[in-house]
Simulated scan of single mutants.
Amino acid sequence: MPKQTFLNLDESKRKLITDAFLREFATKPFDVASLTVVVKKIGIAKGSIYQYFEDKLDLFLYLVGVCSTTKFKYIGHIERKDYPDFWFYFRALYEHGVQFDLENPLQSQFLFQLMENLHSPSIKHLYQEMLEQSVAGFEEMVKHEVAIGLFRKDIPIQVMGFMLYKVGVSIQEHLIQFRVINPKISIEKNIPIYKGKKDKLMLTVDHYIQLVKPSFDKKSNQ
């Protein structure tokens, strides 16, 4: 958590510092990202950072929190009960996620690179923790669908939850592999990752849904 000295800064200075480090961590792994380089760019003393945060990790976790909070404002209000089946809900999460990207490109770029960033040796323990949290979230989605009789129950929830998590990962990797998006160029040009790409993203999501839906849905396996 940031120290009170950081919270006491005026909003413009907090944003300057936050954005500068978002860009640094979006382009470099945690262990390579440099506090020294950033403070030189924005013209503050390196010692100031330790007046604002306990250490580099504390700063990094603050950035994760900021971006996650912002994204939640876009997708947190989406409720499963408002959609006829899980896959309409799953699709809606992507649609609203695109809006987050278009309106908050730097935060989106940071989150896009987050799991790769967490492979840095000094914070690998965080990768496992966040992976477990992500998978647990998908397991809860699966539990709900099984409970209301829409998902099959002959496959362990843990298996289906992890598979659903991997579907999301595969969609992202697919878009990069086939050059629909290029996160590195987006960061260099300071433009949203999905600018002008929403239709292709949603078409890809629809294709993946078509592939995996029969494997999850109860009526497809009766």
Rank of each mutant, 00 (worst) to 15 (best):
F21N: 04
F90G: 04
L118N: 06
I78R: 03
L126W: 02
K28Q: 15
S170V: 01
L131M: 10
D217Q: 15
G168Y: 03
E145K: 03
L57Y: 01
N182L: 08
I44R: 00
V135N: 03
S120A: 14
K28N: 15
L126Q: 04
D217P: 06
S186A: 15
Q113A: 14
K218S: 04
Q177M: 14
E54A: 09
L111I: 01
V98A: 09
H174Q: 12
S186G: 13
L211M: 14
K219D: 14
K153P: 00
K219H: 13
S122C: 09
C67Y: 03
I171C: 03
L102T: 00
K197N: 07
H144F: 15
K218W: 03
L106S: 08
L211V: 15
H119D: 09
E11Y: 02
Y74V: 12
A136L: 14
L201A: 10
S186R: 04
K81L: 13
I185V: 15
L102K: 03
P2C: 07
I148V: 13
K184S: 09
V169K: 10
L102V: 02
T5P: 00
M160T: 01
V167L: 13
E79T: 10
K153A: 12
L175F: 08
R80A: 12
L175E: 08
G149A: 09
S108Q: 04
K3D: 03
G137T: 10
Y194S: 00
C67H: 02
K197R: 13
L57R: 04
Q128T: 13
T18Q: 12
F151E: 11
A26R: 00
G196Q: 10
Q113I: 02
F25P: 01
I157M: 05
V135K: 05
I157P: 01
Y52M: 09
I191N: 04
D58I: 09
I123H: 01
M115C: 06
L203H: 14
A26S: 08
Q158I: 05
V167H: 07
V98C: 06
T69Y: 05
F162N: 11
F86I: 07
L203P: 00
L203D: 15
T5D: 11
L93K: 13
V180W: 00
Q172V: 11
R91T: 05
L150I: 04
V39E: 06
K218F: 09
K40I: 03
I187E: 06
L7D: 11
G168I: 01
F151V: 11
N8K: 14
Y127H: 14
V98S: 05
T5V: 10
K41S: 10
L114E: 01
A33D: 09
S186M: 09
K124M: 12
T5S: 14
F90V: 01
Q128L: 13
